[in-house]
Nucleic acid binder design. Structure first.
Length: 659
DNA sequence: GTGGATGAG
DNA sequence: CGCTCATCCAC
């Protein structure tokens, strides 16, 4: 019944109000809008894309194994399926169910079943083994992380000048607004000048846009979707990319706008990039193109795999209304559940009757974000993220809880080995990367997990031993002297991982100059060649650490107090005797010396860099644009506190423990 | 800075 | 499901 009132002819008269709940979907676009440089999130020609990799982990394994694209393949982690590629989904295999692998193989002889790579006791690097066992192995996701970086790099290469934000291991956002604007001006040069007879000067509405050839650009989500049960809804195979043209009520679609032109150009751009990624790297992807991030994300899932979809503004109302709102980013968790309960709602349409005031009364000031999102508005920006993750976590769940104290130390060592490998690999491209602190989490039975953390001093050579020693110390603080039993989960993490993020050349040039300067000085503070930890580092996960006296001269004349004198600053460095002796603490003097050396090294770096190299401090993410608060506090909603901005650059000394 | 909670994938 | 990552907040 309401249908007839919705099927109107919006292009008749002023093209306004496509739907009374959704304003702002057909704004007047003027020459001023087109020529403006920084309209940001309010730009009426904004174009955002979200691209994600189809069944990413499974795709990684397919590429690694070089199998045909139609090969059904699943990825296991112990006996759970963590990825199922699309060919395998045709067998009805789903993520949740547990499978008897024998039966599964018998039923589908061509199904490839791959277990993720694992670290194995005694092996230095993760690998693919036949005898995976959760009691002795630890999962490694390194391969996926590396492939993810390759894909991200290729997207950036294919899309120069586009803002990109890697949102997770398998997806990224792109802001095409700027490049699209340039292309529009190139293709339609008559828009460069405001016509002399324009009634309102730069504020004159743009002339009608040219017709859009959607062919090959993806699925254009229909403005008036076919009723459920007929037509090609999701899942129906279709070779045609744009499917709207077969419908009889096509005529009721409103005419295209300049924003639709912009979307179609965005679709061209992402399409080319996706093709490159597929051809060069072998990964199929799905993309969504829309006016903002949350809609782009939603749109990407319209048709998968290996496809892309476009959501015109005009299609937003009917696309959103029936959508279960808990599918929207940030409404999938407790907040979404609370909203569903509070208003007895399940779809976006159910919530459109809730006024902003009521929403805010129940869920706080910030829920204006929710109010807007339900109406297709999202002001969050596509923000370039640092290439390096700020934290690095290695964790292990223990199916059989720890019964012996030594087991905890064993797992810490395995986790430390992984962290060492990962940090050092990251340092290959970002040499002076370091974590501000190290954190150990442990959980007993089903209790909440507890954690302890400590600063992690800068050292150029990060070894298993350095990390394990720090981990062991935290372990003692965490579980104390009481017997470590019933521990069901151990996590070791680096946090505050950062370093120089300036251009690669400047970093390298800088390092070599610093090092050659050092060589010229004839400094002998570099003791890496006699480092105890270095000799141990080659032994993989071996725990054995027998105490050997350092090379002669390592100790001062005082035989009772382990110490040394720095040749650069003359300072006597004494090993603090605050902790009880332990096999894991025997390398401490060496560690201290290296640390002290690294202190000088970094000071040199800081001095010589003066303007060249930027050591970035923690940069605050601004929250003034209506973004959701992801870490919502439980209980009654709190008002958001505006925190003061931290200074952009933090002195390098902050990151060092004073020697 | 520390430790916990929430959310996404 | 197990393993990650990020961000926020009270302390």
């Amino acid at each position: 019944m309401a249908l007839s009132s919705l099927v109107q002819t919006p292009w008749k008269g002023k093209a306004k109000a496509l739907d009374q709940d959704f304003e702002d979907l057909d704004p007047v676009i003027t020459y001023r809008h087109l020529h403006a440089q920084n309209l940001g999130v309010r730009d009426p020609l904004r174009v955002i894309a979200l691209c994600d990799s189809d069944a990413f982990y499974a795709a990684c394994e397919m590429v690694r194994l070089g199998v045909d694209k139609d090969t059904p393949l699943v990825v296991l982690q112990w006996d759970a399926m963590i990825a199922i590629n699309y060919p395998a989904r045709k067998y009805g295999i789903s993520r949740l169910k547990k499978y008897n692998l024998k039966e599964l193989k018998e039923k589908h002889p061509d199904l490839m079943i791959v277990h993720v790579a694992t670290y194995k006791e005694g092996e230095k690097e993760p690998g693919y083994w036949d005898d995976v066992d959760t009691k002795t192995h630890k999962v490694s996701l390194d391969h996926y992380r590396r492939e993810s970086m390759k894909i991200a790099a290729m997207f950036k290469e294919c899309l120069p000048g586009c803002e990109t934000e890697k949102a997770s291991i398998d997806e990224a956002f792109f802001d095409f607004t700027k490049c699209v604007r340039e292309i529009i001006l190139e293709r339609y040069p008559y828009l460069k000048q405001v016509p002399l007879d324009a009634p309102d000067g730069v504020d004159t509405r743009l002339p009608p846009p040219p017709p859009i050839a959607w062919d090959g650009l993806g699925h254009v989500i229909p403005v008036n979707p076919a009723p459920a049960g007929e037509g090609n809804a999701e899942g129906t195979p279709s070779n045609q990319e744009a499917s709207a043209s077969t419908r009889t009520d096509e005529a009721s679609d409103p005419p295209c706008t300049w924003h639709d032109v912009a979307l179609s150009i965005g679709a061209e751009l992402i399409n080319k990039a996706r093709q490159q990624v597929y051809e060069k790297l072998g990964y199929s992807t799905s993309a969504g193109i829309a006016r903002n991030k949350f809609l782009a994300k939603l749109t990407a899932s319209y048709k998968k795999p290996n496809s892309q979809s476009i959501l015109r503004n005009a299609a937003i109302p009917k696309y959103l209304r029936p959508l279960p709102f808990q599918k929207i980013r940030f409404l999938g968790g407790k907040l979404g559940t609370a909203i569903a309960k509070e208003f007895e709602a399940s779809t976006v349409g159910d919530l459109l009757s809730i006024s902003l005031e009521e929403m805010q009364r129940k869920f706080g000031e910030d829920s204006i974000w929710i109010y807007e999102v339900l109406r297709g508005i999202d002001r969050s920006e596509v923000k370039e993220k640092s290439a390096v993750n700020k934290s690095m976590l290695a964790s292990k769940n223990l199916p059989t809880p720890i019964t012996d104290a030594s087991e905890g130390l064993h797992w810490i060592r395995v986790l430390a080995a992984e962290l060492a490998l990962r940090l050092n690999e990251a340092r290959e491209t970002n040499p002076n990367l370091w974590p501000k602190s190290i954190v150990l989490h442990a959980r007993r039975g089903y209790e909440a997990s507890r954690s302890k953390q400590a600063p992690f001093p800068f050292t150029r050579e990060v070894t298993v031993d350095t990390i394990a020693a720090a981990g062991d110390k935290l372990w003692k603080e965490l579980v104390g002297s009481e017997l470590a039993t019933k521990v069901t989960s151990v996590q070791l993490a680096f946090t505050g991982v950062e370093g120089a993020e300036a251009g690669q050349r400047s970093i390298e040039g800088f390092l070599t100059s610093a090092q050659s300067a050092k060589r010229q000085r004839g400094d002998d503070t570099d003791i890496r060649h006699v480092s105890l930890d270095d000799s141990l580092a080659d032994q993989g996960n071996d725990i054995a650490t027998s105490w050997t006296n350092g090379p002669s001269g390592d100790r001062s004349s005082d035989a009772h107090v382990p110490s040394f004198v720095c040749s650069r600053c003359g300072k006597k460095i004494i090993l603090p005797s605050t902790t009880a002796p332990s096999v894991y603490e025997e390398g401490h003097l060496e560690a201290l010396r290296r640390e002290h050396d690294d202190f000088h090294f970094a000071q040199d770096l800081a001095k010589e860099s003066a303007g060249g190299l930027v050591i970035s401090g923690p940069s605050k993410s601004r929250t003034g644009n209506g973004k959701p608060v992801s870490g919502a506090s439980k209980g009654s909603p709190k008002k958001k506190k505006r925190r003061k901005d931290a200074p952009e650059n933090v002195g390098i000394e902050k990151f060092f423990r004073k020697p």
